[in-house]
Each structure stands twice: as C-alpha cells, then as structure tokens.
Simulated assay, not measured.
Amino acid sequence: MSTSCEDCPLRADQADQAPSARAVVAALRRCPSCPHLREPSPAAAQRLAACVLELDRERSQACGELARVQSERRELVLEAEAFERRLRELERLHRASSRELETQLELVRHQRDEIRRLSTPLIEVGEGALALPVIGTLDHERSAAMTQALLARVHEHKIRRVIVDVTGLGGVDPQTIQHMLHMLGSLRLLGVRVLVCGFSPALAQLLVARDIPFEGIELVRNMKEALSRIAARKRSSPSLRAPR
C-alpha cells in the first residue's frame, strides 16, 4: 500500500469519518489507480455515493448560478442597447433643438433689426430735408442705432436739413437728454441744419433747470413751424438746396 493510500478516505478503517466530496476527488486525482475504487468496501461505496450526490448538488447549484449570471448578462445587454437607443434619440433631439434654436435666434435678430428700422422713421419732407419723429424712450442702444441710421441717410442723400420731433419722447431724464445731444451734435459736425420741435413742459423744465446748451440748434414749437422755417430759408438762400 502506498503512502497516499494511508490517507485515502475510501479505506475501510476511515468509516467513522465523513470526507467531503472535494477531499475524495482530490485523493483520487493523487491516486488514479486507487484499489479502494476498483473494489470498494460497502463503506467506501457509501462514501462514493454520498460524494456523487454532493457533487451533483454542487453542479446543480453551479448551473443555477450560471443561469442567473447569464440572465443578468442578458438584462445588462438589453439595458445597454436601450441606453444606446436613448442616447441616439437624445443626440437627434439635440441636433433638432439646436437647429430650431438657431432658427429662433435668426428670427429674433431679424425682428430686432426690423424694430430698430421702424423705431427710426426717416421721413423726407422736402429736397435735402428729413424729419425724424422720436417716439418712446431713448436709451443708449436705441440712440446709437438711431444716430447711425440718421448719419448714413444724411451722407448718402446729401441731406442738409433735419427736423427732430420729440413730441412722443418718453422717459425724459438727464441720460435721455445726453443721448439726444450726442445725436444732434453728430449732425452738426456734418454741417446739417438741425431743428428740434415738440418740447413737452417736463422736457423744457429739465433743460432750463440743468442749463443744458443747444448751441447751433434751432428750437421751434412744432413740426409746422419747423417746415415753415425750412421753406423760408430755402426761398431766401437757394444755395442751401441739396445738389441733385
């Protein structure tokens, strides 16, 4: 009997012990030609049967665990596929919303430009003469846009006389006056004759209280008087007519 047989769990004198199936398998691997396996005793046969049952239970448990892992794997695959589909859908929606947002921004820019254009109604009131009704509040942005449009029109059409009607001017305050003075001063630098009409009592009081100068700018009561002055000046000074 070999040394390994002395510890063999299938020996008859090991009957009081209950080796595990793994211990029996390990012993048989060490001794493939185990004599106790070829001619097992009743106790060894009983141990082998118990080992087979234990191994079968372990196999069943392993198969169950494998099935569970495979099921979880399938669920993870399905979740990953669903996530990819959702991601593609979100990317599509993002592209669509970006295009829609760009369209909306372009529309807003167009409307803003149109509002600016409409907020600066330049009206021809004669040869080489323009009238600009100022309606609403006059903040920095609107004042800059209005001045730019007015100066461009003056330069392109050789305008020599401009009537600024402030009858509809709202929100009269020192800042508004500064914006208006800047616009009128820019016209004066181009050699344009500037007439301002339509002063409200509140605006007149503010101008007097702050001693705001209007050098080189003609102040008249209303548009009718402004047009009369332009017509009278034109009749008396033909050289002031705008060149054709």
Rank of each mutant, 00 (worst) to 15 (best):
E124W: 01
S4L: 13
M223W: 03
R142G: 01
S97T: 12
A82H: 12
S200I: 03
P133N: 07
R153N: 05
L169T: 12
V108G: 05
P9H: 10
S119K: 11
A62C: 06
L122S: 03
I123F: 00
T103Q: 13
S33K: 12
L93F: 02
A144E: 15
V52D: 14
V172Q: 06
L219T: 14
G136N: 08
C34F: 04
G171Y: 05
V192Q: 09
E58M: 09
V208W: 01
L55I: 11
L107D: 13
A45V: 12
A27H: 15
R11T: 09
E124A: 14
P121M: 00
R116W: 00
Q111E: 13
L219K: 11
V24E: 03
V25I: 15
C8K: 09
P243W: 00
V52N: 13
I163A: 03
P201D: 03
L207P: 07
S41G: 14
E156S: 08
P32N: 02
K158I: 02
S239P: 05
E215K: 08
E84C: 04
A44S: 09
A50Q: 11
L138N: 06
P19K: 08
G185V: 01
R68Q: 11
Q175Y: 06
R99N: 07
A242N: 04
A27Y: 02
A129S: 13
E218K: 08
E215F: 04
